[in-house]
């Protein structure tokens, strides 16, 4: 885990478009950003394009970044906005789509950690985009409510209530329970 001081030093160099600093930032965050975007759009090429645009935007507006704030929150906010732009461009409604909830996959019953993780990943991909994003940002990326609120530009209370709903939906999908809402 990189310290805040180290990331600040990297940012100062990357503002000048120092190749080594830019590469370090890319190596530190491209996996997390790509995974997040990929789980949102579920298409490798689209995910790579969105991740590319995210980093281009990040480096170009790095000079305006307030270094007293967490860099990851800012970076994830850019990725979120880029993903939303992608959804808008492809006319994908970013809301709760209940038809996504009918899981037809034959999920393994036995408990094996690896299999279970795959199963959860599969279940996450079946969640509506908003639920998926909240689950990934809170449980995978371990952001706080406040950070998620800043990334997604929605109130903290909304984050909380929607996360509860998303979590329950994920549980229902993983445990093959029909939606009761």
């Amino acid at each position: 885990m990189i310290s805040r001081k180290e990331i600040k030093a990297l940012i100062e160099k990357a503002v000048e478009h120092d190749e080594s600093a830019c590469t370090k930032i890319l190596n530190l965050y491209k996996g997390r950003i790509f995974s997040y975007v990929f789980r949102m759009v579920r298409n490798y090429h689209d995910a790579e394009d969105i991740t590319f645009e995210t980093f281009i935007k990040c480096f170009k507006s790095l000079a305006s970044f307030d270094t007293s704030k967490p860099f990851t929150t800012w970076l994830f906010a850019i990725a979120h906005n880029q993903t939303m732009d992608h959804f808008r461009k492809h006319k994908i409604t970013f809301e709760y789509l209940d038809e996504f909830h009918s899981s037809s996959d034959d999920l393994a019953k036995e408990y094996e950690k690896k299999r279970k993780i795959e199963q959860i990943d599969q279940a996450i991909s079946q969640l509506p985009p908003l639920d998926r994003e909240l689950i990934v940002l809170f449980h995978k990326e371990e952001n706080t409510y406040q950070e998620i609120s800043e990334i997604m530009n929605i109130p903290v209370t909304t984050v909380k209530t929607r996360l509860h709903r998303a979590r329950k939906r994920l549980h229902d999908l993983v445990c093959k329970r029909p939606k009761k809402e």
Binding site: K116, V136, K140, L170
Partner: peptide, 14 residues
């Protein structure tokens, strides 16, 4: 268990 395992989801790479 489900939410704990979300943390261990695979990381994808470009």
């Amino acid at each position: 268990q489900t939410t704990n395992l979300v943390r261990q989801l695979h990381e994808f790479h470009p």
